[in-house]
Amino acid sequence: MVDVGGGPGQELSRFKERHPELSGRFVLQDLPLTLNRIEKLPPGIEAVEYDFFMPQPIKGESAMNRKYTDCDWILGSRLYFLRDVLHNWSDAKSTQILSRIVEAMDPEYSTLIIDDYVLPDTGADLRAAEMDILMWLHTAGLERTVSQWKNLLDTVGLELVKIWSSPRGKESVLETRVRHN
């Protein structure tokens, strides 16, 4: 599992804490400035310096096709994870971020999970509309509607498998995979 732009690693740490039975590698990726602020990560989580506008170094090759190297940890991601990343960026920048992940994904093996806001296409509540305006003003980003998410994902060759929405808010989880043509 690769947490792309995962900040101090709180999501990956909670995931490992809730699922200690899971084996495999857990990688936290962020800029050096962010990673250098982390005092200690839980055992089993590796911090890797990464700028999500650059090529993704962790490739999603299926276990049967892996080519082992001295740096075996660089290969084989089943799951890529983005939380509260894309709402900070315009569609153009989000396309760049997603494209770098898609390039690294194995179409038969890898999944990208996006935890972010998903607004209804019509009838968004006032708080959601305010958040959308704030994201636009502060970061040139946006809170996307279902249609906007589908268009963005389609642009980079991803298909939306499912959206899980929280009844308490607008934050949702989008499961995506490389689209098969």
Rank of each mutant, 00 (worst) to 15 (best):
L79G: 05
L79R: 08
I38M: 15
H19Y: 10
L82Y: 02
T69Y: 02
L137D: 12
E17H: 12
Q56D: 03
K16M: 13
M64I: 12
G123K: 02
S165P: 05
K40R: 08
T139A: 10
T122R: 11
E130N: 06
Y50T: 04
R127C: 11
P167Q: 15
R66T: 10
D51S: 06
V118G: 09
L22F: 15
P32M: 07
L126R: 11
S94V: 05
L35R: 01
E175N: 06
D125M: 07
I101A: 02
I58T: 06
G24C: 04
S172G: 01
P8L: 13
A104H: 11
Y109R: 03
H180I: 12
T145Y: 00
F15V: 04
I163T: 14
R100P: 10
R66P: 04
T155D: 14
L174E: 00
L12E: 11
P57I: 06
L126E: 13
E49F: 08
K16G: 10
E21T: 01
L22C: 11
W73F: 15
H87E: 02
Y117A: 09
R179N: 00
D116E: 01
A140E: 14
L158P: 01
L33T: 06
D106W: 03
Q29Y: 08
V178Q: 01
G24Y: 04
R18C: 04
D91T: 11
V102M: 13
Y80V: 03
Y68F: 07
V178R: 00
C71I: 13
G123F: 03
P57M: 05
T145A: 01
E49A: 12
G24P: 02
V48D: 10
V146K: 06
V2L: 14
I163P: 00
E39H: 08
